[in-house]
Design a protein around this nucleic acid. Structure first.
Lengths: 229, 229
DNA sequence: CCAATAGTGTCTGTTAGACAGTATTCC
DNA sequence: GGAATACTGTCTAACAGACACTATTGG
């Protein structure tokens, strides 16, 4: 096969991005699914996604942000490349490559028409290989939650340590020692107390509010030895 | 822009795979580079890579294995997807997506003509964004070596624990406590002693030879709390 | 027996978890 | 003052690192 400087049709493939947008609602990890308007699988619930447009996107992450903006109406949440999925059968339109991203958001506004938040552990069959993509994303997020600051992106700022503690527990599905948790968050050094700001949640001592230090808005902080859940 | 069921040229992009094949030589992590025969960058040293061929590849990993077979003359080493790199400028032929893989091999045969092993810390400028891809791969491998069995794939079987110990130290660039190392390898449970097989390296006690348990040939074993280098 | 490396037993320091105690709020 | 939750001090248990010891080979 001659592959010299040919960049014609044989070497050009269907290329898409898919975004697994996750949030925490009712102490459950939930994923945003969109009702597809077009074939294939018109009418089915699927991940927000779309073609990569060479004319408008600077790279695939840019395409993912565009998809999030257009289909989920979101500004720029935490976004991380997950993996690429490819093959002849995953898309009925033909051999395709999808670069998948994970995005995390804190406060899921009321979903707009056609948007559905579903718990990741109770998903129906999804079109394409979206079931597998979601499973990979959930694995990645749960795994990274064991030793990094990733879950802060599921928490609206400012937040209290007990709130963040609850988020880690919901993600990892098991109780985390509260003393160790505070020690670790302290070591990670990513949080700063909002001076004077406390959150009163009821007839008891209010909790200190914290925010992410700017250095950690786009970077994760990694714990040396995990949170040892 | 109409994106209905159109799968025509606008939505088809240049799609390639690149493989970062790493090995350990002279206690240094080295990467395989190939002298490019074709434009662009003909004559330059670059990662082995090529177009994804929808007609022959089952997925991008398959394309990566084909590239390794054809350009590096290798059977099937440890192969793991790294990340995808995309954009209008990384390839002079146009907007492109490259799905990059990391591969690890043990014994680098004498390189064939056009193949060059170079230490990852002393690379020249590489064409495309291959410098960045190699850097990402090296980060990934060094990072995963801290808490997983990944480095066993850099070691020819059967091997002794002191040999494997040396490989971990070379990767992490710092000494690892030998007692802890043995304890960890034991906990990981991925090695089995080859009955009766010892390796005599000189005028001293020979070391027990080990091999990877079959369950771990394609899967990694993860340590709970890292190797604490 | 000596030198050299392989492998083990055991002590010690560090770190995570348990638990109890103090702090602060609303009633 | 009581109830509830936020936070802290301190003991304990688990684990990694240090070090000394034994094991096994060639000379």
């Amino acid at each position: 096969m001659n592959t010299s400087t040919n960049s014609g049709a044989d070497h050009r493939l269907i290329c898409t991005v898919d975004v697994v947008l996750l949030t925490l609602r009712d102490a459950q990890l939930q994923v945003l699914l969109i009702k597809r308007e077009r074939e294939p699988f018109a009418g089915a619930l699927a991940l927000p996604g779309g073609y990569v447009h060479a004319s408008v996107d600077q790279d695939c992450a840019d395409a993912a942000r565009r998809v999030l903006r257009d289909k989920a109406g979101l500004p720029s949440p935490y976004l991380e490349q997950l993996a690429s999925f490819s093959g002849p059968a995953r898309d009925p339109r033909g051999w395709s490559v999808s670069v998948a991203y994970v995005a995390l958001v804190a406060a899921p506004q009321a979903p707009q028409p056609g948007q559905h938040w579903l718990p990741v552990d109770e998903l129906p069959q999804l079109p394409f290989d979206h079931g597998r993509i979601v499973a990979t994303a959930v694995d990645r997020v749960r795994n990274k939650s064991q030793y990094s600051s990733l879950p802060v992106h599921l928490c609206a700022e400012p937040f209290t340590l007990p709130q963040l503690h609850g988020i880690y527990e919901a993600l990892l599905g098991e109780p985390i020692n509260a003393v160790s948790f505070r020690r670790k968050m302290d070591e990670l050094g990513m949080l700063e107390p909002v001076p004077g700001a406390k959150l009163a949640q009821g007839p008891h001592r209010p909790a200190q509010l914290y925010r992410l230090r700017d250095e950690f808005r786009r970077t994760l902080s990694l714990a040396g030895r995990g949170l040892n859940a």
